[in-house]
Design a protein around this nucleic acid. Sequence first.
RNA 1: GCUGGCGUAGCUCAGAGGUAGAGCAGCUGAUUUGUAAUCAGCAGGCCGGGGGUUCGAAUCCCUUCGCCAGCUCCA
Length: 638
Amino acid sequence: MPDEYIDIEISAEGAPGVKAGTPLREALTDFPEGSIGAEVDGELLGIEDPIKQGGHYRLLTLDSPQALKIFWHSAAHLLAQAVKRLYPDVKLGIGPAIRDGFYYDFDFGQPISSEELPRIEDEMRRLAEADQPITRAEMTPKEARELFSREGQNYKLELIRGLNEGISVYSQGEFTDLCRGPHLPSTGLIKHFRLLSLTGAYWRGDERNPMLQRIYGTAYPTAEQLAEHLQRLEEARKRDHRLIGRQLGLFSFHPEAPGTPFWHQKGVVLLNAVEEYWREAHRRHGYAEVRTPIILSRGLWERSGHWDHYRGNMYFTSQEDQEFAVKPMNCPGTVLMFGERQWSYRELPWRAAELGIIHRYEKSGTLHGLFRVRGFTMDDAHIFCTPEQLVDEIRGVVRLVYEIYARFGLTEVEVELSTRPLDRIGTDQMWDRAENALTDALKGEGSEFEINEGEGAFYGPKIDFHILDCLGRRWQCGTVQIDFNFPERFQLEYIGPDNQPHTPVMIHRAILGSMERFVGILIEHYGGDFPLWLAPEQAVVLPITDDEHPAAENVAERLSGAGFRCRIDGRAEKIGRKIRDAELLKIPYMLIVGAREAADGKVSLRRRHQGDLGVQSIESLIEQMHSEAAGDSPAVTE
RNA sequence: GCUGGCGUAGCUCAGAGGUAGAGCAGCUGAUUUGUAAUCAGCAGGCCGGGGGUUCGAAUCCCUUCGCCAGCUCCA
């Protein structure tokens, strides 16, 4: 029964139709079996919720994707009910539906251990089997205060203080919770769920508030969907770049340098392959590569505004009574370069790209593999152009962004445009022009985008690019920001056709974000199975016996000569063992040389995950590898 | 930073007051092998660092460093 619609009309005084405030269940004369709520204009309604507006209602069943949000929210309540039965004195925080599940925050007084989760899950199961109806009631703030103060639910009381009339509570059995809803009709619908983890979380996310204990869980209407979701979590665990990074010998971390990776030989090959492609693409798009100092004087950072706004994230050092900062951004250095001399409008745009090494202090608790580090290489560029050139420049950046992502097989990109915040510099006219330039450029390139009203930086509006990896996870990588601040602070100018000085427009942009983080994303996206052009080791020659070593040397030399990364596994192991080890190292090509191949000057070809592909001449192999390496990246799963 | 958990051999992990263990990896030797693990032997440890309790500490306590999970996707 998917996609069933029903129109509801709100009655005016004395006219036919449904009275506003009527619960959805009563408003529907013919309530279809299996309906758990409805959606209208993006708003979700449970069947007990009151109708507020007329409209075209889409009925939801458990099969509807939108219904999951309701489902998870009710699962959170089920969790809270179970916890309250087991720990009667528990204080409830909040328990929303989130992406892929739900959580609920509790104050247990005495912290509980994650070994309690199965017990709680069992209690939830019992409660679900009891199949209690979920009912809704409205009350005034006063009534709500009385209700929750009776139970000593101080967190709920705090929430009520921020609410006006029309407070709703949802109940199932003895359990009542302050809640906006919507919810399922009854708890019996929640059959398949799993509690996943127990962690700490500050009340309202503020570290000055008490630490609550948060229980995360997930639930699905069918056992298959739940199993599939748990499978996805398992897949993500297997793809963890920290694990694969060690298994493949790409990088490591040491306590001596928290938050900064040590890149091993193979990891550097990978980084270099990404950088080589990056340089090639930037040359083609008319960028000039520059390199600015890592340590610059405090005075520069005072002038750029970083001293006032970013000092807490910066590292400092001093020598000869002079204070310096380790750069957290590349822009001031590039701006100094621009300011070195006079510029003619004929020389603009100047697109200065830099793979700049920057350092930012991050709280120790937020460090996470390559994803959150303290030192990294930003694939930065700063474009200085005339106002007339702005739209074209942004369009060029957008094109380059899509081109570069596509090279890595990342074709799903989500774009967000952030507009002027309340606290900002520059005139409204400048903001109009800049926001229009970003909008026009995105439209011109045919990108779909969402607008984040008021989320721009104080110095200018921006576009953010998010890529979706093969597991559908979203990573913010690229950004394009227009900057009114720098040209003003550093009094940048160029001489226009009118022989007068003008202020250039400055654009900051990054595409991959951090090279290190991007490589981490690639590791997880490919699961370590890198396409040929990125693979740290592209081929390994596997002689069957020592007799084939000369022939194997010959094969390896030919491949190395053709520019491929290739080695010989000359160990006194059986071929099965050599294959296994090469498969585990995820080497794309295994070239087996036995007596027959040695005699014919050929190899027996084996591809990672594919097995034996038969005998092939070395010439045709090299040709095949060249075209594979040059082409677009193949599908992620081979 | 804060809360909780975890640091034992290169890796994955056992041991939970009484002589530090296994598998894999490593080394040595044998084996010369045909598409995902050949066999045997050997070696390997300030049980993360520091302090304490105890006759005795990997084990209990304190402290410090690091790692892992999380720290509003708002009732």
